[in-house]
Each structure stands twice: as C-alpha cells, then as structure tokens.
Design a protein around this nucleic acid. Sequence first.
DNA 1: AAGGCTTCCAACCGCTTTAAC
DNA 2: TGTTAAAGCGGTTGGAAGCCT
Length: 309
Amino acid sequence: MNMGRPPCCDKIGIKKGPWTPEEDIMLVSYIQEHGPGNWRSVPTNTGLMRCSKSCRLRWTNYLRPGIKRGNFTEHEEKIIIHLQALLGNRWAAIASYLPERTDNDIKNYWNTHLKKKMKPSDQNEEGMEQEGHFSSSLHPKGQWERRLQTDIKTAKQALCDALSLHTTPATHAVPETKPSSTSHQPYSHASSSYASSYENISRLMENWMKTPNSHETNSLGDYSFNNMPNINTPRSSSSEGAHSTTNTTCAQDHVFDLFTFNSSTNYGPASQTQVPLTMIENWLFEDGASQSHEDLMSMSLEESTSGLF
DNA sequence: AAGGCTTCCAACCGCTTTAAC
DNA sequence: TGTTAAAGCGGTTGGAAGCCT
C-alpha cells in the first residue's frame, strides 16, 4: 500500500550530530542551484547522509542568509522579553518580529540568558499571570485559541496591506511586509571554531547573490536571496514561492470571518456585509500603530493585549 | 595543572498541522 | 475522503568550551 506521499527518508544510514563544513557546502551549493524547498529530494540529490528534516533545519537555523548570530542587542533583548510576556513561548511568532534571528536562537537566548535575568521580577509576572492579567496565560489556552490570537494580528496586517493603509515601513513590526533585509546584513560572527568555514559559506552565498540570473528559474520558480519570498520569516522561507500570497489571502479570509463572527452577535445576517469601513479603519489604525517596535516597547502589557480581545 | 561544574547552543525529538496522493 | 509524509514548531539534550576550585 502506498497511499499519500512517499517517505521522506528511509532512516537507514542517516547521519546525526554536528554538521561538517563539507556538508554545509554541499547543502548550500544545492540550494544555490535549486532554492530551498523540496527537502525530500535534498539528501538524494546532494549525496548528504542526512535526513531531509535535518537539512531543512540546518538551512533555516544556520545557513540561511540574513541570519544574525550571537550578540543580542539590548533592543532585541527588550523585544524578546516583552513578546515573551505577551505571547509566551511561541518562539516562531517572536522570531517573526526579529527577522534576523531564528526561533531556535531566540529560544536558546531566552533559556540561557533572559530566563534567569527575569528571575527577580518573575515573581510579579507570575503573580499577575495567575490573577489573569496576561492574555497569553489567562487560561491554559488550546492551541487553536492561541493561534487565533496571532491570526488576528496577521489578518489585520494583511487587510492593512490590502487597503494600502501602511504605516511607516521602517517601524512595521510584521516582517512579511518588509523588503528583504538580508542582502546587506553582515554576518556578525560565528562563535565557534566553525567560523572560518562559515565565512567561506557566506562568501559562497555572496557570489550567488551577485549573480541572480543564474538561478532565477528552477523547479521551484523564481528564486534569489534578494527576492526570496518570506525571507524575513523564519521557517517559512523553506516553503514554496506562493506562500506569501496564500498567507495574505488566508489572513483576509480570517479577518472577514472575524467580522462575520462579531457582527452576527449584534446584527442580523444581512448587516454582516455592511460593516462601516471607518470601523475597520479605526480598528486597523488602532492596532497598526501598536505594531511598531517602539510602541511595542513602550506600551504596557495590558495596553498591548487589550485590543486583541 | 587537572578535575569538576556550569554555560551555551546546535541539533534532535516528538507532537501538531498542512498538504499531497 | 482517508491516509500518509512534509512542514512547522516548541521542548529537550549532548557535548564543546569556559570557568572555578
């Protein structure tokens, strides 16, 4: 019986553990030619004795261009602390606000640095959480509920984009809308002895970026680091090119679902399509403003979450 | 100098969701 | 439409490196 997709890898002779520079170069060379995605075929086509999942993780967490490593700035630190309080341990969501950092990196940084740093004040926050002050831990929420919270924001952003109600792009917190910041982002440093190899790979990638034409067309569609779809969104970069459009559409669907849901309690079905635009605008502007990093930093937790519910 | 302890982070594991067949 | 693997995600671990005694 062979229903569904074929297996990702046969798990026989799969290599585990740290990646060698040679393996990295093999992977990068392959992605250079074909673009990320279709991970299933990566081990076969590259000769890497790695599981496809391992290849994907290696790429998204380490080799992907535009990743800043080590040395979290005070600003980044504050954002992480604030977002962690807001969203809980939803590292992917937090990482979307820090496009140059991977969720894994943020998670590690939180666990190794910030968690203990927060210890003295934790008492307060935990106390507040127990009293239900924070939305993220108001109740032991189900996954769909927590996802909904994020979706609301995504949906608002999508609708905002659709209606061309951009706030200043530089302060926009939702990274999907930002132009790629990766091409000019210097690699800060690699903390391990692997640094020299890593730099080699960086150079390899820089060469690639200088010659976008050589890889514009491939089985996965147009692709280059300069116009990589969703490059700012960790993980999603591994997805296929159509992703961002799909997200927007889905988000818009969500937002209209929300309107339908809200209005159905107050209005009859006929009025569902007659939500005044000013209402939507107000709603968007309200939250759109709060999406900037600066505002995110300055607003209180209560303020920042009140709009969500 | 060396042994033990701690810190840090890359990578893995396992679960859930999404999408291909 | 059901089954299955891929993708996404958060938690955890292993081991290298640094620090302490």
